[in-house]
Amino acid sequence: MSRVRLDGQVAVVTGAARGVGERLARALSARGAKVALVGLEEDTLRSVAGGLPGECGHWYADVTDHGAMTRAAREIEERFGTVDIVVANAGVAAGGPLLDSDPVAWRRVVEVNLVGAAVTARAFLPALTASRGYFLQIASLAAIAPAPMMTAYCASKSGVEAFAHSLRGEVAHLGVRVGVGYLSWTDTDMVRGADEDEVMREMRGRLPWPANRTYPPGPAVERIVAGIERRSAHVYAQWWLRGTQSVRGYLPGLVATVGARHMRGLGARAGSVRTGLVGAGGAADEKERGHRGRTHDE
């Protein structure tokens, strides 16, 4: 498949303050794209933008806030004149058994990961239609093989996969291409935050190879960039993920059977998993929501 040169293209990346989003912004900028970073951590976004080699800007916005994202989309188009690529990357995670989970954190995972993806698409589709551009939704192995102790994350990533596939059929006649990006465990603040919990780290270590490994972000981001250049319908950040598509019908049952055995082995320890969002990004999200709550109370 032919590749689209990124030089001069305008790319929007949500969740760009850290992790895959930050590295993706750097990689796109290095290839000559003009990059718009969108996220909650304004100071961190400013720092990331300051280190990019090409033209860029940063916008503070919660991806679940339709008004904020619509304003960001308008300002980005005013700044750069067009939008060619949008990567819906923003995401948070929480772990542990459903019955012991924090209901607020559980709901927030779904809101950011799934509702935030739809809000992002709604805000930028007019610009992408004008440019006949590309929308890449970042999903996960969790969409292909949902696992115990990750109900909110797996539900949200299964949801965004279905959302993107559905959206593809809606906008193809407008010239907009839609892709889904799949990642396994990648060395980011989110994964490291989850690994701080002994039970979650143990559960992940019991997964079969190669799903039990943590992968470096560099090669994963390079694969995502190559997918963006090709406007691919499916982008696999780790080489072996492509093969899971052919057996995905069997994976939920297999994972449930193996997971049930592990859960029995954990016993009461399963309930000791830390509640709330994980990693530095999760902490930033909780801090922002707390700040807005205090502002509303005052």
Rank of each mutant, 00 (worst) to 15 (best):
D102V: 02
N89D: 01
D84C: 10
T70N: 13
A68G: 06
A93M: 06
R107W: 09
P103V: 04
G81P: 09
V110N: 13
I85T: 08
R74H: 02
V92A: 10
I85C: 03
G96R: 08
W106G: 05
G95P: 03
F80W: 15
A72T: 15
A88N: 15
G95L: 03
L99P: 08
L114P: 02
A105K: 01
G91F: 04
D65V: 08
A94Q: 10
D100R: 14
F80V: 01
D84N: 15
A68E: 13
V115Q: 14
G81Q: 03
G91S: 08
V109N: 05
V87A: 07
T82G: 12
V83A: 09
E77N: 12
A90F: 08
D65W: 03
A93P: 04
V104R: 12
A93G: 07
L99S: 11
G96V: 04
A105L: 04
I85P: 05
M69E: 10
E78V: 01
F80E: 02
A93T: 08
E75I: 12
A90W: 10
S101R: 06
P97V: 05
G67V: 14
G91W: 06
V110L: 15
A94C: 13
L98F: 14
A105P: 10
L114C: 03
P103Q: 06
V109S: 06
E75Y: 07
R79K: 15
G95S: 07
R79A: 01
S101F: 00
R71F: 04
P103W: 00
G81C: 12
L98V: 12
I85Q: 04
V87C: 05
A94V: 03
E78H: 11
A94L: 06
A73V: 11
L114N: 03
V92P: 05
P103K: 01
E78N: 09
T70A: 15
V92G: 00
G91Q: 08
A68I: 03
D84I: 12
G96Q: 09
V115S: 14
M69V: 07
V87T: 00
I76P: 02
E78D: 15
V112A: 02
R74G: 07
T82V: 13
V86M: 12
P103A: 08
A73L: 04
A73P: 14
T70Q: 10
V112W: 00
G116R: 11
V112K: 00
W106S: 13
V92Y: 02
F80Y: 15
E78P: 09
V86A: 10
D100K: 15
V109D: 07
L114M: 12
L114A: 11
A73G: 12
A72C: 11
L114K: 03
A68L: 10
R79W: 01
G91M: 05
N113C: 08
G95I: 00
L98P: 06
D65F: 01
R107A: 13
V115G: 02
V115K: 06
D102R: 01
V83K: 01
R108T: 15
A68D: 09
V115T: 15
P97W: 08
F80M: 00
R71C: 05
V104W: 06
L99N: 05
I76A: 02
L99G: 05
V86P: 10
V109G: 07
G91E: 00
G67F: 04
V115H: 09
A73I: 11
